[in-house]
């Protein structure tokens, strides 16, 4: 990739605009973005548009397939699956987003500190990240989940640890690039603090790759959350979550496959659209593919 010229503070915005413009040429990525936004809307409006409450049990209508009253059918306790899928989306998608945001924030802080101070601070932090990365991701989340206990917030914390090393390394690399630039010294001579200058140059440049990583990260977190539910950790019932619904439906896969199809489709759709968006963003950032 060609060396990006660091520009002044104001250029951050135009860089953004260029990327968005590039993105709009990519029909596929736009499709992904549209699907994702639509999904977000649907799940945000879940309390308004769901036909039933997600906890409502109708013991006379157990494990029914799709019908007029229950578009997606009912589960083994007589609850409407469409409503549960919509509500579950709120938990699943927000868990993915928040854990990624948390990972990005923490990663940014850690990576910047490592890059800025250099020397032994950098070494220690990098080794620490090495150690965390040498543990298979799912395992680390599982152990954390066991320690923190089940629950929405705890799961977000447990999941976010996975994204931290990646984001931290990114930020560190950016920080190192920027730190050595001459205009830093030049700015210092006119009394701007070193930190402020660095921040104003580093952040706009690093945002783009961070966003790409974050987009893929959200998809990964959603899948990891569903793996946690498989094992029995994660969000507590009766709060619905796509992964939990999917895992729960394993027992019924022979007799009532519809219980597995709809949460599965929901996860698939979300992950797909996020990946399309991520791919598009990555292409948009690549100056060689610029149009």
């Amino acid at each position: 990739m060609a060396e990006k010229k660091s520009r002044g503070k104001g250029s951050g915005n135009s860089e953004f605009k260029t990327i968005l413009k590039q993105l709009s040429y990519n029909k596929l990525a736009m499709l992904g973005a549209i699907i994702f936004v639509l999904e977000l809307l649907l799940v945000l409006l879940a309390p308004v548009i769901s036909p039933y409450n997600y906890e409502e049990m109708d013991t006379t209508a157990i494990r029914q397939t799709s019908s007029a009253e229950h578009l997606f059918g009912t589960d083994d306790l007589g609850r409407d699956i469409l409503s549960r899928v919509l509500y579950a989306g709120r938990y699943s998608i927000t868990m993915g987003i928040f854990s990624t945001l948390l990972a990005a924030a923490l990663g940014m802080v850690i990576g910047s500190i490592a890059g800025y101070f250099g020397g032994w601070v950098d070494n220690v932090i990098m080794r620490f990240l090495d150690i965390i990365q040498s543990l298979p991701g799912l395992l680390l989340s599982i152990v954390l989940s066991a320690v923190l206990g089940p629950g929405y917030i705890n799961t977000i914390l447990a999941l976010s640890v996975n994204g931290i090393p990646g984001q931290a390394r990114l930020l560190r690399a950016e920080m190192l690039k920027v730190r050595g630039n001459e205009y830093i010294e030049a700015s210092q001579s006119i009394n701007c603090t070193k930190l402020r200058v660095i921040a104003s140059h580093m952040i706009p440049n690093s945002i783009s790759p961070m966003i790409v990583q974050a987009t893929m990260g959200v998809a990964n977190m959603i899948i990891m959350a569903s793996s946690l539910s498989f094992i029995g950790l994660g969000v507590q019932p009766p709060a619905p979550e796509w992964g939990a619904m999917l895992s729960y439906s394993r027992e019924f896969i022979r007799s009532s496959p519809h219980m597995a199809i709809f949460p599965g489709l929901a996860i698939a759709l979300t992950v797909l659209s996020l990946n399309l968006m991520g791919d598009g963003l990555r292409d948009a950032l690549d100056p060689k593919l610029r149009r």
């Binding site: 998809a219 899948i223 569903s226 498989f230 992964g243 999917l246 895992s247 394993r250 896969i253 022979r254 597995a260 599965g264 996860i267 698939a268 759709l269 992950v271 797909l272 990946n275 399309l276």
Partner: peptide, 17 residues
């Protein structure tokens, strides 16, 4: 892409069946 979107355990049970 279809591959990453399908949960593994689910695919496993399908394959077994």
């Amino acid at each position: 892409l279809a591959g990453i979107s399908i949960p593994n355990f689910w695919l496993a049970l399908l394959l077994v069946i």
